[in-house]
Design a protein around this nucleic acid. Sequence first.
RNA 1: GCCACUGUAGCUCAGCUGGCCAGAGCAGCUGAUUUGUAAUCAGCGGGUCGGGGGUUCGAAUCCCUCCAGUGGCUCCA
Length: 644
Amino acid sequence: MIHITLPDGSIKKFEKGITSYEIALSISKGLARNVLAAQINKEIWDINRPLFENVNLRLLTWNDAEGKDVFWHTSAHLMASAIEILYPGVKFGIGPSIETGFYYDIDFMDYSISSDDFKKIEDKMAELVAAKQQIKRVEVSKQEALDYFTKKNDEYKIELIQDLEDGDITFYQSGDFVDLCRGPHLPDMSAIKAIKLLSLAGAYWRGDEKRKQLTRIYAVTFPKKKELDEYLLLLEEAKKRDHRKVGRELELFTFSPRVGIGLPIWLPKGAALRERLENFLKKVQKEYGYQQVISPHIGNVELYKTSGHYQKYGQDSFRPITTPQEGEEFFLKPMNCPHNCEIYSSKPRSYKDLPLRLAEFGTVYRYEQSGELHGLTRVRGFTQDDAHIFCTPEQLEDEFCKVIDIVLYIFKTLDFKDYTVQISLRDPDNKEKYIGSDENWEKSENAIVQAAKQRNLDTVVEVGEAAFYGPKLDFMVKDAIGRKWQLGTIQVDYNLPERFELEYIGSDNQKHRPIMIHRAPFGSMERFVAVLIEHTGGNFPLWLTPDQAIILPISDKYMDYAQSLMQTLDKNDIRVSIDDRSEKTGRKIRDAELRKIPYMLIVGEKEENKHTVSVRQHGMKDLGTMSIPSFIEHINNEVTNSLA
RNA sequence: GCCACUGUAGCUCAGCUGGCCAGAGCAGCUGAUUUGUAAUCAGCGGGUCGGGGGUUCGAAUCCCUCCAGUGGCUCCA
């Protein structure tokens, strides 16, 4: 007999050789029907794999991330299996599960494939599911594995096998399809009830652009048709919120191939919105002791040689600009920090000057490969809400806390409720990859961890993810429909103070080197506006939105009243316009709703006589009649409350 | 940059197995209407079908090429 410990701590006795599935069955039929995989101690196992020892057992279902993982991994095999039948001779790379769904990288040889073929593949997959094939796990020797794939002529699998240890290699087989795989897998395909192939993409073998590009097929599967429908609905919703679409509809920004790809042009409404965001942050930063600075859009190549960016990125940048007579070289500014270092060293600094917090809305230009560009989130010219804090090692933790406070204030104000924080530390086994002394690294990593703890942040620590010049802390927010975006970042830097030989005179009258913190709570204005659009679906908070209200006169007769109303609101800093078209009220309301204007002010005979407005709120119904002063107060309160 | 797909009026799209002057809805303009909580009616203008080249008696439609967009890969100071 063996003892199986369940997550609740209870221990059950079973015969040796019992499977997780049988244990599930002994608990309940429903559980047995839903169990997808089993966590055996630390590992995830197939549920039909026999157990011979005392273990901790956790049964995994669709509700567990690990359960989904197994489900999708098996689905990847299912897809590969269908593809092998439809396109005999194709070669398979890797086919993992991902956050939502899975993909398989396939060398389609001479076959050409497009999304028109998805239906055919989906149908074949469904057919294989219906056939209820068992999935068998087979342990093989390295030689057997190599022999099999040599015979199959699949150089990708051979390469994968060559990197594996003998004795640790398994195949999984379903029907005629055999795949090299660590597993685990579902016992059969029958749980896969809904299948959708999503997209087709090129993907370099092992992510190496020098190697062959395989065809990657993304797909997703679900245990219930309903869940697929919900997922597709979510994709629809994401499409509706796409900042490129909303940005065009609300006339916020545009692109022009004549201006250049990846170079956003801000239209009046978008520019004003962005300016409000900048002013909002400037105000916060002022309270936190920041000073605004401005630096030019280009910098002498020597500046970037000093910073080290030239050596690291010079070849992948926009080509330098040269002067006609002297032939001096200038780069378009790819970063603000070198300039800010020069501001630091523009005069001798005392420890009494520190921390020195220099903030700059600095527009930078980086060459991004054309295929990388995407709306406002990936561009070639963008404005960072940058700041550099120069401080002593002792001040680091406190400064970190203050930056975190700014970021959290922004999140709260802009209604990002769900966020996680990643702390990236250096890999202690590869210390030579990093610049700076052990002592400094320990201090700063400790400062970050402590600061995060002090502010009760829900953190994930990633060892080895630090930049070469220092550890960092990144904020990831979840938007209104559950997508994750990386926003603010706070990074410690030992490199630049070193390279720029920054110094301050300490209380000991000796020279010391300051530590630098880079931080950008928004990241960049472009990216942040994009995320904000997708988070709000274009329904911005009142203080930020381009048009706060629109006056809708019932007919021309009430234009005078509408005009005087507009003047009054305008004097009270409410952004308002009049819809003076000779349209019916229903039409004006519809158009204002589509423009996502928060308040519609309907004025006709009643309102003119009583000096009131009929207020309708976007997405709601009639709010009833208000006096003009009470409407102004209503608006002002809403703005004040959301900025509090 | 690479792979796949796409490019028809300001927007959304039809036409695309080659053949009547290239279409629709919305938007725009003009006029009528003077309107009470999500689309009033009528008329008009607007496209060298992304650019260039080719095949053909004939190209939006087929081929080549360039440009741009979309989804990925890679990279991201």
